[in-house]
Amino acid sequence: MWLFQWSAVLLTTALLSHSVIAAETMTIELTFTPDLNNGRHVYETCAACHLPEGWGSSDGAYPQIAGQHPYVLLKQLLDIRDGHRENSIMYPFVQVRTIGSYQSLIDVVTYITRMPMHPRHKQGPYNDFSDEYRQGKQLYQQYCASCHEDDGRGKDEARIPKLYGQHYPYVMRQVGLIRKGLRDVDPVMKGIVDQLSREELELIVNYVSWLEIPEGEKAPSAGWRNTDFY
């Protein structure tokens, strides 16, 4: 009897201080050791669209994912799974029933991170001798470099994607979606995109597509094939 009353009292207190309780967040930290072999296995789920090489398509329908930072990749997968990034076509692929648990996500992300990048990704129309390139460079340094870095390598800890090597039409499309409010991003990124004109964005994206991919991250040639899958 006493016990029962006591718990009733506790419940009342809990209800009264509801707002306080709700404001507290709980953090759970989980640690995983990546298993590359399983990562390769899981990647079969991705390969049909992102290609065995992870190079995406030059028309921008699929991004190059090979060599992207692990936390950036993981964030995208979880955002799509949780509905924070709208992508109906990708959605079923990132569900537990298809791709697997957190361990599988970590494994596949690790596998993708280590894939060599396409050495000849699709670039924008203005090459590095052009005025447009120079204007794009200036704009990039002014608006983008503080987060994405001068060389476009991004920052994994802050989930800021690597930009070099990405197909020009893919980045153009994403920037367009962000502008129209069809892709949710970090407010700072959104603020900057909204501030720039269409022409300025195009110059920036063009410049980004001409950033060098470091030697060690590239596949030896465009004819290289990921023999794990053929």
Binding site: E44, T45, C49, T98
Partner: peptide, 14 residues
């Protein structure tokens, strides 16, 4: 593979 079998169904679902 089984993974590709599942991917095919996920493709259709998407």
């Amino acid at each position: 593979s089984q993974r590709s079998g599942q991917a095919g169904l996920a493709w259709a679902e998407g």
